[in-house]
Amino acid sequence: MAHYAMVIDTRKCIGCQSCTVACRIQNDLATELIYNPVVTVGPKGIFPNVFMRHVPLLCMHCANTPCVDACPTKASQQREDGIVWVEQEKCVGCKACIMSCPYGARASHDGVVWKCTFCKDRVDEGEKPHCVNTCHQKARFFGDMEDPESEVFQLVNSNNADCLLNELNTQPSVYYI
């Protein structure tokens, strides 16, 4: 069974927010919802030793899901391919998943919870998520982490791929280089 993952090369990201805009438009998100912001770390240091990096944030589609475990209605679910999503018809808006998500990847709107789904409907058709397709810097990679032939597999198993908040043992499916 495939296990979908995303690798983001922060050395290539220029913080243009194209992925943020593509996600919002293509998924027709409400005004107050942002699944996919790009935050900026820095600038830090003193010239000439300065440092700045752009970090796109999104749902980490963790293997060890605090949000799914917290959901009392089974509205928050994880597919066999690792994609975490919310079935809004079952959601009661208790915010247990919002509170338990360490990455702030969920938001409530219209009484229910919304989040990034890795564009699962597109993935089911063999397409890549909108954020990946729209990135003109080719900073995002998406694919099957279990397939040794895939680019994602090779990047994930490279020495410099890392996850956010590793210490929480959520085992994210989004990696950063």
Binding site: T73, C91, V92, C94, V112
Partner: peptide, 13 residues
């Protein structure tokens, strides 16, 4: 709750 009328669902997981 955001959807109080669905409150019965909190018993399902």
């Amino acid at each position: 709750l955001g959807k109080p009328l669905r409150a019965w669902r909190v018993f399902t997981n």
